[in-house]
């Protein structure tokens, strides 16, 4: 199979370039990550992140033939050749397919991704009814791979101010949690031209989420909650 991969070595390159590879995948190479691992045995200078190799850690997000996805979840069969691999769009490139996620995680931390509850803690734990727990489905599964935020045009133009789909999905995850008492503060923080309202419902986020989640739906619900709160 043929691949064309974005290469950038900060120690020797002024500019990134594309490098072509020929690779003969073996029978048990099923996913794109398997091919990349095999390629690494041929060219050990090729750099990319990977860890769990089964779509749980979110390390190997990259731009595959023009769309963001996880290499470990992308089947080799059916990929158009040459397979063009580039780093996540809009993120600073550290080396080859490895991007700097500092800003992405700063946005994640800004929405206080933890339960806030100022009532006295009960003896053992804060219980939820099955219905309350149900509300977290489709939100808690996010693995923070950044496929969504890095495919979002609004995030490209204001990466420093717009929280982005991943951070907003997480924000809604805590807004929806029956055990969290900071909903009003969370909504007030998000009621901002940049943080939430740069979203133009393009839905690129939902298109590429490798876990099948819908950040655009979470954003829709946050906006509805804001309207309800102020009326």
């Amino acid at each position: 199979m043929r691949l064309s991969i974005y290469r950038f070595n900060p120690e020797s390159d002024l500019k990134p370039h594309m490098q072509d590879y020929e690779l003969a995948p073996e029978a048990d190479d099923k996913k794109l990550l398997d091919a990349l691992m095999r390629l690494k045995t041929i060219d050990d200078s090729l750099s990319f992140r990977r860890s769990c190799r089964e779509g749980v850690c979110g390390s190997d997000a990259m731009n595959i033939n023009g769309r963001n996805g996880l290499a470990c979840l992308t089947p080799l069969a059916g990929l158009k050749e040459p397979v063009v691999l580039r780093p996540l769009p809009g993120f600073p490139v550290i080396r080859d397919l490895i991007v700097d996620m500092t800003q992405f995680f700063a946005h994640y931390h800004s929405i206080k991704p933890y339960l806030i509850n100022d009532t006295a803690p009960p003896e053992r734990e804060r219980l939820q009814s099955p219905a309350e727990r149900e509300k977290l489905n489709g939100l808690y599964e996010c693995i923070l791979c950044a496929c969504c935020s890095s495919f979002c045009p609004s995030f490209w133009w204001n990466p420093d101010k717009f929280i982005g789909p991943a951070g907003l999905l997480q924000a809604y995850r805590f807004i929806s949690d029956s055990r969290d008492t900071a909903t009003a503060e969370r909504l007030a923080y998000l009621d901002d031209v940049y943080r939430l309202f740069r979203c133009r419902t393009i839905m690129n986020c939902t298109e590429v989420c490798p876990k099948g989640l819908s950040p655009s739906h979470a954003i829709e619900r946050i906006r509805q909650a804001l309207v309800r709160e102020s009326s």
Partner: peptide, 9 residues
Amino acid sequence: LFLGQRAWV
């Protein structure tokens, strides 16, 4: 008038 959700609304 144009802060946050107001412009959007």
